[in-house]
Amino acid sequence: MTATVVELGKLLDVVLFALGATVGVAILFSLAILGVTQASERRGQHRAAAIAYGTLAVVGLAGCVAAAGYGLVLLTSK
């Protein structure tokens, strides 16, 4: 009875979207911060490591922007 009153599939979508978006963006943003700080610290001595961390920062930030944009597009297109 409760399962039919409560649309479980719809609620599960909300839970998965919210958890996935929050945790995903937090990880990506943290990796971006890690990338930026480490890249600037290693710029002088370890060029390869600096480039790798710089790439990590760019990927992390791009991921955050993409996730936020995708969420908004999903919301407006429904």
């Binding site: 958890l19 929050t22 937090a26 911060i33």
Partner: peptide
């Protein structure tokens, strides 16, 4: 849901960034 999502997110962020200097973070 918000409680759980925020708790998991901050735990993972601290894990990733725990050894960095707090100022820039």
């Amino acid at each position: 849901l918000a409680f759980t999502a925020a708790a998991v997110a901050i735990t993972l962020s601290y894990r990733i960034l725990g050894r960095l200097r707090p100022g820039p973070v």
